Simulated scan of single mutants.
Amino acid sequence: MIIVAYKSRDEIGACLESLPQVLNDRAVEVVVVDNYPADGTSEFVGEAFPWVTLLDPGENLGFGAANNLGFEATRGECVLFLNPDTICNQPALQHLVSRVLSEPAIGLITPRLVQADGEMDLACRRSIPTAWDGFCRGVGLSGRFPRSKRFAGYNLTYLPERETYPVGAINGAFMLGRRSVLAKVASPMVPQVFDESFFMYGDDLDLCVRVAQAGFQLVYDGRYDVVHLKGQSVAKDYDKMSVAIFDANRDVYLKHFGKTPVARWKWRCLFGMWKRLALWRASRRGSRRVRPA
């Protein structure tokens, strides 16, 4: 398991306590990459969880680069990229690891992620949105008609939460897959699972696109829950965070779907309009949590 910590001193303890040290009769490898050691996360983890491997890169590498560093430091057959603001449980981990090892078609899998209030974190089960999906989410049609396949294609809310099926993308807070699959989709020049040109956001979506392009499935399994205390490990300036998320997702689309000048122009315009619309709607509601996922 690879956990990237950033100002995570107050939350990482609950995460690590929820992880088994043995799973399926095999020792569990846990690597924490501390992108912000100034808050005492490394000292706390070293004292309270001596079985965890700590990596201090000496600077904030960003989410993707830190995960790549952790990936290089592990050797397990299965690899779990996990946020420090999650709380796991052994039955869920055991079930998902068993699926990954027994179903070769699976590239990455996630359980149903639930927030502190018990509501589902919708970002754990997404499509690769079309322009229409983005429009419906931007103007609020997906929220008004969550059971409509036509309007709710972004977060797939028309699908049952408690079943399992392939999806377009999953959340970087919990991504479990086989090392052999991740190695296949890594950069051919260097062993980079995540594209390090994405510093904080967009890297999970980019990885999902590459896994799908390599012929593997992104799978959601809603029969098991993992808690995701969403937003605890990021800065609290939600306006800037929201803009960064929109821009990063735009760059994913430019990378994979912007092969022509016309396509690049289309995605730049659409993401620009979508971002402005979402920020305007949030300001009208008095909300500061504007997130495209």
Rank of each mutant, 00 (worst) to 15 (best):
I3Y: 00
A5T: 06
Y6V: 11
E11N: 08
C15F: 03
L16M: 09
E17L: 05
L19M: 14
P20H: 00
V22G: 08
L23R: 09
A27G: 11
E29M: 10
V30T: 05
V33N: 08
N35M: 01
F44V: 13
A48K: 14
L55E: 09
G58Q: 10
E59Y: 10
N60T: 10
G62Q: 13
N67T: 02
L69C: 12
F71L: 04
G76N: 09
C78W: 06
L82N: 04
N83G: 11
P84C: 13
P84I: 00
T86R: 00
C88S: 03
N89P: 02
S98M: 02
L101I: 13
A105G: 12
M120L: 14
D121A: 15
L122T: 14
R126F: 01
S127Y: 10
R137D: 10
R137P: 00
G143M: 01
S148P: 04
R150A: 09
N155W: 02
P160D: 10
E161P: 07
E163M: 12
T164A: 13
I170H: 06
N171D: 15
F174Y: 14
A183L: 07
K184Q: 15
K184T: 04
V185H: 08
P191L: 03
V193M: 06
S197R: 15
V209D: 05
V211N: 05
A212C: 12
L218F: 07
Y220L: 09
Y224M: 11
V226Y: 01
V227P: 01
V227Y: 06
K230H: 15
K230Q: 13
Q232P: 04
V234Y: 11
D239P: 03
M241F: 06
V243F: 10
N249I: 08
P261C: 06
K266A: 10
W267N: 02
G272M: 04
M273D: 00
K275L: 14
R284S: 10
R285S: 07
S287W: 10
S287Y: 12
R291Y: 14
